[in-house]
Design a protein around this nucleic acid. Structure first.
Length: 895
RNA sequence: GCCGAAGUGGCGGAACUGGCAGACGCGCGCGACUCAAAAUCGCGUUCCUCUCGGAGGAAUGUGGGUUCGAUUCCCACCUUCGGCACCA
């Protein structure tokens, strides 16, 4: 027996990692004629805790793809960088009393160390970091482009704000507003409630007033906004950081404060953000979530005059067909007309109610199954379609932020209105009778919301029934309103402007100076606006940004510098472009490189960013497309989400149900790649990350899984280097069969990898390895087919387990590096089988299996089947009534 | 409540276009090697029944349907996970 050297990843992995790094094997070439492949991971935030094996679920599959496409001859861009700005680092800096710049370097370096430990093939020459001025210079540059642009609805794209100024000076803004009226999908290009003006009015304005007006159109703009304020921590907190009205960190009751905030006008892109979803290959769930988030709904805006006042209240409705069934109207407590129209004897009650609603948290106000509340204003509106005088109420179930902040209430056909009407004894009027029964307002138990039915008591619509698409009555109602001049077709979107400013230190400074004439952007040659070093990172007593206390920063020659910084969503909205040319100090990137590399071919990350990052990035891409900076309008061609990895420990909840926890430091159940690699090596970790489950599924980590994969790699090691040792029982296999298995494995590998079915890629490789043991036991190992099979095995292994593949490749005396070898070609001749197995069924049950030559025809197979004793047993001596033959697979006999 | 995804052995999962359900791995059991253990190798491992070295039956969340044939297609329901949640 030969003395064998055991597979020892601890000695071979660091050796090859050092060699690869020295040789810079994974550098992408600049733009050239080669086909490109851009595979990208979601931009990671480098946390102080480092990575867990859950993070590797993202990085290993993309590395497999990168290595695979390199071997297939593509110029592969596989970069990484750090989304380094943001609150977690800032909070850590405050707590540890360490400069966040320093923490960033420390944490990023730890991530890089872990990436290298896993043998990931990133192009390290393209490493980027959002918190480096070299990077945020261009985040600021894009901010300026947005600030200096508006969305021209007629051109359906972003245009320089100077064009808007020229138009205002020449013709005013009426043409723009008229166009939006006729094309309601453009409602989001301008702030709600902005008045149209004439050229004379524009020219009469001061520069400050003009800037205020332009602000309603700019793609980056400042506006008043209500935010959650934590009086103990003295910070603004996000909605997500508020639980039951209390700040998550301090436990203090949050109060609402109105602050001036910076926004991006994502609403202008609502329609394109929906429509362009048809052009990407993304998980259906994410596409649906984005659609819902944008929340397009079509209907009509109808104006209701207020009885006895010189005022009209517009309402938005998706069911204009039910206009005749409106029996009351409801205003949001924040509606500007609420107090103005309130009758004197109701004033006290309404004021009280408005104050009560204002004091409610978002949580209380939108709680499920909340009892309806509201107060009568004492005023009446006139229903413009039938002159009916209907009471106007104020109630918190109507939100100021959606539609017009006022609704017409149709209790017979809207469940919310129904509940309100029942509670306050308001009349209910049925205007749509369902086809199968007759609704009686006095006995109805819930609203009939279906569109299907016949119109009753509805003026000109009476007797109409729902058309083919269910919207005939709606269209007729809109046409009627338009003709009478009381309403018009309208589109509403739920999506709101994207809040970008944070009164915090650790973020990209906003390149704006507030002058007596209003906000002015820095010139491009004044960038980057550096984040100054400070001693204290805590926000001021009233939530002022720490930047406010630095006179050298705040005081600009022409005014006061903006002290808000950008939320990290800005940094991550364009980083995928930067990788094309990451160190360019003249532009966000050389257009030649950007045009070559983008869009991203495959983008992989967790589903938690379904809406936020993926929506923001799409908007920025479209702005840059409109402005001619890039030539693509969707950044990520293919998107896939990896599933979560949970802790292996089974827990039982209070109902006795079993579940697995997420890995987290606070629960003390984190498994790190470091510990797994120390014990079993990076290749075994990589293999198990791929093998653990279906890529998109959430699954608990199994501590036995890595040793299982390690055993497979051990077997690979032994069969490649020591095929003569430890023979098993003799088996039957021909050289041709071995060759067929090798080439079929290439096919399965390619097919499964391209379908993101990485677990079956690994299992195909395990089967191939098992087949080699069998072939060895059949005495095949000194044949040319054996050498070819081993060669294929190692090439296919290289993307999964690069270290062991390189080591074995080297020991067989083949040329360095295996990662630079060509991908093996499938030989179609080798794949063909000479004999095939045909399953014989009788009445749908398998009764026998026949081995026949691959070219056997149906007649021959039928003859063989009828001769089989196992089959005859179930034929009861008769002939089959029906015969179904599936070529090469199955013969089904029916008796 | 609404929208989306998914339910297959003890566990993770596989099954290409309607055609052998349970590949591959984990775990478990038995055996070989060993003084012993580890490692390794071999065999077995969905459930039930029987006249058990064989044969038959049932089974892919539940109940129906289409089909010679359904994990796959259709209908209804149940459960789990994710998202949204008074959006007019």
């Amino acid at each position: 027996m030969t003395e064998i050297e055991r597979y020892n990843p601890q000695s071979i992995e660091p050796k090859w990692q050092a060699r690869w790094e020295q040789d810079q094997l994974y550098r992408a070439q600049p733009a050239c004629d080669k086909p490109k492949y851009y595979v990208l991971d979601f931009y990671p935030y480098p946390s102080g805790e480092g990575m867990s094996v859950g993070h590797a679920r993202n990085y290993v599959p993309t590395d497999l793809l990168a290595r695979y496409y390199r071997m297939r001859g593509y110029n592969v861009l596989h970069p990484i960088g750090f989304d380094a700005f943001g609150l977690p680092t800032e909070n850590a800096a405050i707590k540890l009393k360490v400069d966040p710049h320093e923490l960033n370097e420390r944490y990023s370096a730890n991530y890089v160390r872990q990436y290298k430990l896993m043998g990931l093939s990133y192009d390290w020459s393209r490493l980027i970091n959002s918190a480096h001025a070299e990077y945020y210079h261009w985040t600021q540059w894009i901010f300026i482009q947005l600030f200096n642009a508006w969305y021209d609805p007629r051109k359906d794209k972003a245009c320089p704000i100077a064009e808007l100024e020229a138009e205002l000076a020449e013709r005013g803004s009426h043409a723009i507003f008229d166009y939006i009226d006729d094309h309601p999908e453009h409602v989001g290009v301008v702030d709600k409630g902005t008045p149209p003006i004439t050229a004379e009015q524009w020219r009469a304005m001061s520069r400050r007033e003009q800037n205020d007006y332009l602000n309603h159109f700019r793609l980056a703009f400042q506006a008043e906004s209500t935010v959650n304020w934590d009086p103990v921590d003295k910070v603004v907190v996000a909605d997500e950081e508020v639980e039951n009205g209390r700040a998550w960190r301090s436990g203090a009751l949050v109060i609402k404060r109105t602050l001036k905030q910076w926004f991006f006008r994502i609403t202008a892109y609502a329609e394109r953000l929906i429509n362009d979803l048809d052009t990407v290959d993304w998980p259906e769930a994410i596409i649906t979530m984005q659609r819902n988030w944008i929340g397009k709904s079509e209907g009509a805006e109808v104006r209701f005059p207020v009885d006895g006042h010189d005022a009209e209240i517009p309402v938005f409705t998706t069911r204009p067909d039910t206009l005749w069934g409106a029996t009351f109207m409801v205003l949001s407590p924040e509606h500007p007309l609420t107090l103005a129209i309130t009758a004197p004897d109701q004033r006290q009650a309404v004021e009280q109610y408005v104050a009560f609603a204002k004091g409610e948290t978002e949580e209380q106000r939108t709680a499920a199954d909340k009892e309806k509340t509201g107060v009568f204003t004492g005023a009446y509106a006139i229903n413009p379609v039938n002159g009916a005088r209907i009471p106007i109420w104020v109630a918190d179930y109507v939100l100021m932020s959606y539609g017009t902040g006022a609704i017409m209430a149709v209790p017979a056909h809207d469940q919310r209105d129904f509940e309100f009407a029942r509670k306050f004894n308001l009349p209910i009027k049925v205007v749509v009778q369902p086809p199968d029964r007759t609704l009686d307002p006095t006995t109805m138990e819930r609203a009939y919301e279906d569109k299907n039915g016949v119109m009753v008591d509805s003026g000109p619509l009476t007797g109409m029934s729902t058309g083919e698409d269910g919207c005939a009555c709606i269209r007729a109602a809109i046409a009627y309103c338009q003709q009478r001049g009381i309403g018009k077709r309208r589109v509403n979107y739920k999506i709101r402007p994207w809040l970008i400013s944070r009164q915090r230190y650790w973020g990209t400074p906003i390149p704006i100076v507030h002058t007596p004439d209003g906000p002015v952007a820095l010139r491009e040659d004044e960038l980057p606006l550096l984040l100054p070093k400070v001693k204290e990172y805590e926000p001021g007593p009233n939530g002022e940004s720490p930047l406010e206390s630095i006179p050298e920063f705040v005081n600009a020659p022409n005014g006061r510098r903006e002290t808000d910084t950008m939320a990290t969503w800005a940094c991550s909205s364009w980083y995928y472009i930067r990788f094309a040319d990451p160190h360019n100090d003249k532009a966000i990137g050389d257009p030649k490189e950007i045009d070559y590399w983008l869009p991203v071919d495959v983008y992989v990350g967790g589903a938690e960013h379904a809406v936020l990052h993926l929506l923001y990035s799409r908007m920025w891409t479209k702005v840059l497309y409109d402005l001619g900076v890039v030539k693509f309008f969707e950044p990520f061609r293919v998107l896939r989400n990896q599933g979560l990895i949970l802790s292996p420990q089974k827990k039982v909840d209070e109902h006795g149900r079993e579940y697995y926890e997420k890995m987290s430091k606070s629960k003390g159940n984190v498994i790190t790649p470091d510990e797994v690699i120390a014990e079993h090596g990076a290749d075994a970790l990589r293999g198990y990350e791929l093998f653990i489950s279906d890529f998109e599924k959430t699954v608990p980590w199994n501590t036995q899984g890595v040793p299982g994969v390690r055993r497979w790699l051990d077997r690979v090691w032994r069969i490649v280097l020591y095929p003569d040792v430890d023979k098993g029982a003799p088996t039957q296999m021909t050289a041709r069969e071995l060759r067929r298995i090798a080439h079929q494995t290439i096919q399965r590998y390619e097919r499964d990898l391209e379908a993101f079915s990485f677990n079956t890629v690994v299992s195909a490789m395990m089967e191939f390895t098992n087949a080699l043991y069998k072939a060895r036991d059949a005495g095949l190992h000194h044949t040319p087919e054996w050498d070819e099979a081993i060669d294929i095995l190692l090439r296919l292994l290289a993307p999964i387990a690069p270290h062991i593949a390189e080591e074995l490749w080297c020991r067989l005396g083949k040329p360095y590096s295996i990662t630079q070898q060509a991908w093996p070609k499938v030989d179609p001749e080798a794949v063909k089988a000479e004999s095939i197995t045909i399953v014989v069924q009788v009445n749908g049950k398998v009764r026998d299996r026949l081995t026949v030559p691959a070219d056997a025809d149906e007649a021959y197979i039928l003859e063989q089947a009828l001769a089989s004793p196992a089959v005859r047993k179930f034929l009861n001596g008769g002939a089959p009534k029906q015969v179904h033959y599936v070529a090469g697979k199955l013969l089904s006999l029916v008796v």
